[in-house]
Design a protein around this nucleic acid. Structure first.
Lengths: 153, 153
DNA sequence: GCAAATCCGTACTAATTAAGTCCACTTTAA
DNA sequence: TTAAAGTGGACTTAATTAGTACGGATTTGC
């Protein structure tokens, strides 16, 4: 179906949620309950985002995550490639192990680069700050009652 | 890896090959041997392309395939969606079976539409006539044992 | 009219990839 | 010191994709 995989889907949702409250730290369990997803899954996604610097993590009790840089300096392409690896629509672009013997002669290579660039550029043009829809108020954790999810900074 | 599936890869290669010789009909077995792919696989891909009118098929002996319309009236988005189904990067756009209980309230929907549109537009801007690299005469297709990528590095 | 070449549709199996889980470890606040 | 967090890697299961098979329909040319 030519679609992003689910983890990327989660990633975008998580990032836009976190971006909506830059003054807070969000814990993995808290985010998981916000989104109704299993903790290990959320954790896995966050892991990738941290690794690429899109999120900063804080360990220990009251630890959690916040944006690694400004929301307008993070693009959708960044998020996708953090979780999913490089955005390469076809097999031959990404791996350089030389499985294909005819390399430089390859007549299709140019074609795929045209296509790859078009898509990459499209995704690199969308910033996190353009994705303006956070989870609405009624999805937010019950802060007043023990603040189980979101740790205020 | 956020990539097109292999059949789409084949499809683009097939289409650009066929587009390079608009005066010929190409049979499925002929194309398969040009690309070094199994006939049933090529056949499957061509099927989808015919179904969407990107190719016209001719049955019977001396039958085969040719472009269904001018190369500059066929876009990469057309090819992808013919083989792979609609270009919908995330799950919640395409199926309307209501698995997602919050549908119209869904705060992420708008975000995904931004992203989907960007990618769709990028792909719809690339025409088959822009993909100018046919298989050159000296191209010797690698002998395929099934899962080989058509597009070499 | 028949045989050969070709496309058509569907169902099936195998292979690959993605999704999700688990666990032992480290870090930090109280 | 203990509990609440993140980290990293290995693992299992689920889902999807790739590829195969086959019976049928259509056209050409002899």
């Amino acid at each position: 179906m030519f679609r992003l995989n689910r983890l990327v889907d989660y990633g975008v949702v998580l990032m836009s949620h976190i971006a909506a409250h830059t003054d807070r730290r969000f814990s993995a369990p808290g985010l998981a309950s916000d989104l109704g997803l299993p903790v290990p899954v959320v954790s896995k996604v966050l892991k990738g985002l941290v690794h690429r610097g899109l999120l900063t993590s804080y360990r220990g009790a009251k630890g959690g995550y916040r944006l690694g840089r400004e929301a307008d300096a993070i693009t959708v392409a960044d998020i996708i490639s953090a979780i999913d690896g490089p955005i390469a629509l076809t097999h031959c672009i990404e791996d350089s192990d030389g499985t294909c013997g005819i390399e430089s002669l390859c007549p299709q290579r140019g074609n795929w680069q045209i296509i790859n660039h078009a898509v990459r550029n499209a995704l690199a043009d969308i910033r996190l700050s353009d994705l303006t829809a956070p989870l609405p108020p009624f999805f937010e954790p019950p802060l007043s009652k023990g603040g189980k999810d979101v740790t205020p900074l």
